[in-house]
Design a protein around this nucleic acid. Structure first.
Lengths: 157, 157
DNA sequence: GGAGGTGGGTTTGATTTTCCAACTCACAGG
DNA sequence: CCTGTGAGTTGGAAAATCAAACCCACCTCC
């Protein structure tokens, strides 16, 4: 039934609809670092204030962030990650790791992330079942949406 | 040093400058699935053709994809991931996992990814040094760029 | 009690992107 | 010759982004 023009139903696309707009993941980065105030976010991200306000509204409504008053009189707010927001950290780690490896050759040193085991964190994606690092060739995709194959929409009559 | 308005130097931001525009990661998804032809990408992603063309140029120039002629006469091309492109798959896996868990409650079944160990893939980010799954509280950030702290730009004189 | 500063935004208007449909060009098949 | 396919490009309307200015409640300093 997949009408012409419907894209592939996909959790990647759905997740990007939530956090894929410009600056959204940088907001999450700062908030995970503990920098949840509006002006900190503006400075550290470099986003226009109006856009940032829009992103914050969206992320709160999506359940990724919560807005909390850290002071009444004067009313002052900050933003903190929800449990769901913290579960997006693997996305940040994967992006950081790629950038560290491929982009950071002529620039400053990357931000160091120290793991509680005492070593510098190098994130590795592993298979929960067998524990081994996941390699592209080890994967086989099986679409489960009727009307869709790996290649695209099933041939329509 | 850290002039007003300079954002935090960061590999996450740098990586997003390469693959963070709308549709770029969906292009990578399709290309990793083996769907590298222009019309397949248009159908499966649902992107406007002109935007898609722009994204493909950018991803090729950034070294994430290669453009290859799979036929001369008529000239026909497809796009495939480079080694660097394949290394972005952890980002896709992390996005997919989050969407599967948080967004896919009233919708179709998610795409199943079968790992070569025989089980359904559930990606887990682990620390390469100690092998244990990474949890937010186990991390401590140490900026290494002069003029920057975790909180933001260092107090200027 | 006025002057200035801070935090958390909103408003305004110019600039950029995105979107969509239509178009092109080269070839292939019947 | 007529139609179809693959891989885009073109043109103009609609939407998002940008930068800077503005706002308002409160606080501190003098």
């Amino acid at each position: 039934m997949a009408a012409p023009k419907d894209p592939r139903p996909c959790s990647i696309a759905d997740t990007l609809a939530v956090v894929g707009e410009k600056y959204s993941l940088l907001v999450l980065r700062e908030v995970c670092l503990g920098n949840g105030r509006f002006d900190q976010l503006v400075r550290n991200i470099g986003a226009p204030r109006d856009i940032l306000a829009a992103r914050l509204r969206r992320l709160v409504e999506a359940g990724v962030l919560t807005k909390r008053a850290y002071s009444e009189h004067p009313q002052r707010f900050d933003y903190r990650p929800t449990a769901a927001g913290l579960e997006l950290e693997p996305v940040l780690m994967a992006l950081k790791e790629w950038g560290d490896r491929h982009l950071r050759h002529n620039t400053d040193l990357p931000m160091a992330m120290e793991h509680s085991c005492g070593h510098e964190l190098v994130p590795v994606v592993t298979c929960r079942a067998c524990g081994s690092p996941v390699h592209h060739d080890d994967l086989t995709a099986h679409p489960q949406t009727p009307g869709w194959t790996v290649r695209g929409p099933a041939a329509t009559s």
